[in-house]
Design a protein around this nucleic acid. Structure first.
Lengths: 222, 222
DNA sequence: AAACGTAATTATGAATTCATAATTCAGTCA
DNA sequence: TGACTGAATTATGAATTCATAATTACGTTT
């Protein structure tokens, strides 16, 4: 028997959690904006019940803020949030790097290398969009390689939160070059299965990204 | 003007999230059990809407599992979950230890020392309950000391999840003694504001707890 | 005009209702 | 007796309704 087509997600609220989170992360719903319950219900064709269930989940994830009797607003991306989130993400990546060295098989490493090469090509072509996507895939693959669902879940949430700061737009040439170099180093360590080395590099890589973020924010705020 | 009494939590679902999570963590609702929606509604005196909202949040936190059209069950505490959670908690504690050295003031450190002394007294008196509570306070204070809400939130969730494994019941004498020694070392580093040292010790302390957990589980499963 | 007060409107939290999926239970047949 | 069938019952997901809080609109007063 052929592969049966995947069952569409069974419950509305699960689907809505992902859809709404995407709207927030993709900046379709802007920080500080009130979440337009009515419009969203209409555009998704659902009643308020599942939508509100989804909002409760999103609030617990930190993407929206609930105010009693005043509905939900899209959470702001504050400097403090980035200050808090990045060190945590960096440690999660460090752990992931260490574990990935242990658990990834050669094929898995090869797949990451391929994507890495594509990322470098995108860098050389100055294709920010392609770079961003390849970069995201690489980090995701390394996290997945740790074979730790809890680590993955917490990382995914935090990564989504900081992604809202949309840093790529004003990524400086220096930082971009530095990031590429860091990634080269990471690939070396991964091939050598140097767990501690890869972990440290991934942590440093993330803190470097953080520093660049802060610098860009400060420059923007002049 | 005197302190006005605190406003009782405004929304039912927020209150319910905490209450239900407690029922799960305190083992009043047993792993694998179906969550008795009806009974809970009656005993809390609320309708199904806010209770179900709370269940959605609890599902996203990993305390219950939702099955489409078959309601919610209390999540099992699997060995894999502990294997996944502990390394992550350990890294979060490491980070917290480092930051706490930076951000805690002398009064904060003194308060932790006091609680530490009480914990040691409980140990000498073989009072598991008092030990457990003091221990929990100390770890929480160190996490708080990091002054990082995101770190704190993620740690709190994971700590609650592993707490369900209720390890204290069969804490061995050797492990208990070792834990006390590790805590003594932590206090030394904290007073010295040795960030890296405290971080490493806290990580190791958590991994030691993890190892003892696993050992106890294996012994139990024979 | 600007500031205030009040009525009308809207939005929100929660209860209730409704359609349907899952489960239970009685009856049938081997 | 024990496995199967199908109706009755119950539980579940989602829509709808309802009471009330918040917001807006509109006069009134200075």
């Amino acid at each position: 028997m052929n592969q049966i087509e995947t069952i569409k997600r069974p419950t509305l609220h699960e689907e809505l959690v992902d859809r709404l989170r995407n709207l927030v992360v993709e900046d379709q719903l802007k920080p500080g904006e009130k979440v337009p319950e009515k419009e969203l219900c209409e555009s998704f064709g659902v009643s308020r019940t599942p939508l509100r269930e989804a909002l409760k989940v999103l609030a617990s994830e930190g993407f929206v803020v609930l105010q009693a009797n005043r509905g939900a607003r899209v959470a702001e991306v504050t400097r403090k949030e980035l200050e808090n989130a990045f060190p945590v993400i960096a440690r999660l990546e460090q752990l992931a790097g260490e574990m990935a060295c242990e658990f990834l098989d050669d094929a898995g490493i090869a797949a990451i290398q391929t994507r890495h090469d594509e990322m470098v090509a995108a860098y050389k072509a100055r294709d920010r969009q392609a770079y961003f996507l390849a970069n995201q895939d690489i980090h995701q693959a390394l996290i997945r390689g740790a074979d730790n669902e809890i680590l993955e879940a917490h990382h995914r949430l935090l990564a989504a939160r900081v992604r809202r700061a949309r840093f790529m737009a004003n990524l400086s040439d220096e930082r971009w070059a530095q990031a590429i170099e860091e990634h080269e180093g990471m690939m070396e360590r991964l091939h050598a299965r140097d767990a501690e080395g890869l972990g440290n590099l991934m942590k440093q890589h993330m803190m470097g990204k953080y520093a660049a973020h802060i610098k860009a924010m400060d420059a923007e705020a002049d």
